[in-house]
Design a protein around this nucleic acid. Structure first.
Lengths: 199, 199
DNA sequence: CCGCTATTCCTTGCATACAAGAACACTACG
DNA sequence: CGTAGTGTTCTTGTATGCAAGGAATAGCGG
């Protein structure tokens, strides 16, 4: 629904959105209620509905969760042996390394996105996938995350970390895979947030 | 809302619930939509609304998630030093051990519940708490979990595991705390589900 | 007696009218 | 000129009527 971008803090009246999508207020209200449960908007009763601005602390918390969930996924995937997800990951890492040496940061960003999702899906745990989707919904629409890291050094390091995670999964080292993935997510978050583990 | 127990598979008509709570269908519908998002019920359009029965696989997946999230929480809490949550945990473990030797399984079950929640809250990560709450909502209403384990041997072992987790947190060993908590959750789940890591 | 078909009843989905409350602007008074 | 009071207008919350679709059942034909 909110495919585009509404500025944070902007009021979203139900009647306005209803006219936008040419429906009544009822389905709009249902959608807004969902978005409120996902912490994407804030509905103040009898006052108005506003696009929510995540606090810095929340961003840090979300990245901590991301680290834990993706680490879990890596560990679970490492126990599974050869799967279509693993083959996809292998091709993805190869393509990432190619994009890295070619300095094609846009393509690399896309491949990174696919890598993380393939890994989570590869965990073969639908509940984990569902929680991860919720988590990413909160992070994805934040402009902080949208600015793709274009630092060539970071891209090269990130690519190496991806390969390390892949290697651990191939070796069925679930312990190492989880650690490697956590380290990778932590490093990426640190790059985005500017260092410092706690707020 | 669903404080009580509706049998799984039972149809829940909106109009019936509306009469039950003496409100119109609109707020009932909103509540049901939320419960559907939490996978507690299933709304088949133009057909009916039914209490959802989690599959065995989903139960296993949820326990895997529980293991990961509670492990995360233990690790995060171990980094925090002395907090009110830690003091609460210390008192809780003492009380648990007392209940264990007294074979008061009912009191022990209550203390276990408080232990897990105190630990998650002690992580000081509101997003983690929120995801954990969602997770437990799916598990709590399942009768499988409600049958408190009354095996004295398991109670004794569980109590010891709680103390070990507490010890690791006191020692600020976040790595050990996470491992100990994971092991505890895994052992408890195994007791409930009857062994076997995968379905 | 069995199978097919049409109809009726039930459900949820949507649109709209009304109610309640909060914020804001305007006015009157100190 | 400042401030308190009041009225208007906006918002969301709720109730209700209607529409659409699926399922079960009754009726009919073989």
């Amino acid at each position: 629904m909110l495919g585009g971008t509404y500025p944070p803090g902007e009021p979203l009246s139900e009647i306005f959105l209803a006219q936008q999508f040419d429906v009544s207020r009822t389905p709009v209200r249902e959608a807004l209620k969902q978005l409120e449960r996902e912490s994407l908007i804030e509905i103040r009763p009898k006052v108005g509905t506003y696009v929510r601005e995540p606090t810095k602390r929340e961003i840090v918390e979300l990245f901590q969760l991301k680290e834990g969930l993706e680490g879990m996924a890596a560990g679970l995937m490492a126990r599974r042996g050869r799967t279509p997800s693993l083959e996809f990951l292998e091709k993805n890492v190869k393509a990432s390394e190619a994009a890295s040496v070619a300095h094609d940061s846009e393509r690399y960003a896309q491949l990174v996105h696919e890598f993380h999702w393939a890994l989570v899906n590869g965990s073969d745990n639908t509940k984990l996938v569902e929680h991860y989707r919720l988590l990413m919904n909160q992070l994805a629409f934040h402009r902080l995350v949208l600015k793709t890291v274009e630092n060539p050094r970071r891209i090269s390091a990130s690519s190496g970390e991806h390969r390390l995670v892949l290697q651990m999964i191939q070796d069925k080292d679930h312990f190492g895979a989880e650690a490697a993935m956590r380290n990778h997510v932590y490093a990426s978050a640190r790059e985005l947030l500017g260092g410092g583990r706690n707020s």
